[in-house]
């Protein structure tokens, strides 16, 4: 039986500037890939950040089993004046990894990001696609037990997108747990084991991708 890896129980979590979550009771098992969809402002990102421990629920609790990493935004926490290599260390440490781990993964990260010729250049000289590639490469190089992804898989050229998706699949095969927020229904349908539809801070429905996506389209009219 799969171990329970992440649980989020909230009764009335209110976040004035985003969307208030309420009545969230969710258990995610080890090895699952969960997709979260919903309209803008429905509470998808708030739920993800609550799982990451960024927001503290007013009521209820969030429990995890294992190391958790959140990949949100492109180049979040990376510094424009540091080189790509220095940013790998900085971003890796922000994701909770140790120096030895980052040192040992350095070559693999550089190769995966396809930035071999630019890795010692300042980050400010990178294009947005290059920044995203470096961010995803670091975030997914050291496989955390639980990886939370917020809308960053659709970046980069088609070749890199494919590589990122393949890495997510690899993580699934390695029994890691992934929760991702995305509007790319095709991708979610392809890789998710379960999907959640959020509406006004609540879980509207949860189930297999085809059914949840159909419910979303139905709600959208």
């Amino acid at each position: 039986m799969k171990r329970m890896l992440l649980s989020s129980i909230g009764k009335s979590t209110k976040y004035p500037q985003t969307c208030g979550l309420s009545d969230i009771s969710l258990t995610i098992n080890k090895g699952e890939i969960i997709g979260i969809i919903g309209r803008n402002g429905s509470g998808k990102s708030t739920l993800l950040r609550t799982m990451a421990g960024i927001y503290k629920p007013d009521n209820g609790w969030v429990g995890i089993n294992g190391q958790i990493s959140l990949l949100a935004g492109v180049g979040v926490g990376m510094n424009k004046d540091l080189t790509g290599r220095e940013n790998i260390h900085l971003y890796g440490s922000m994701l909770g990894h140790e120096r030895e781990v980052m040192d040992s993964m350095m070559d693999e990260i550089i190769t995966f990001s396809e930035l071999e010729g630019f890795i010692d250049e300042p980050f400010r000289t990178y294009s947005s696609g290059m920044k995203a590639r470096l961010g995803i490469s670091v975030a997914t190089a050291v496989q955390p037990d639980i990886l939370l992804i917020d809308e960053v898989l659709g970046v980069g050229d088609p070749g890199f997108k494919k590589k990122s998706q393949q890495r997510i699949r690899d993580m699934m095969e390695n029994s890691n747990t992934v929760v991702l927020v995305s509007h790319s229904f095709g991708l979610l349908k392809e890789i998710c084991s379960r999907m959640i539809m959020m509406e006004r801070g609540k879980i509207k429905c949860i189930g297999i991708p085809e059914e949840v996506i159909a419910a979303y389209h139905e709600a959208e009219g």
Binding site: W61, G63, N65
Partner: peptide, 10 residues
């Protein structure tokens, strides 16, 4: 009910 195997994030 909290599972004893889960670590409370807060």
């Amino acid at each position: 009910e909290r599972s004893p195997s889960l670590e409370n994030l807060h």
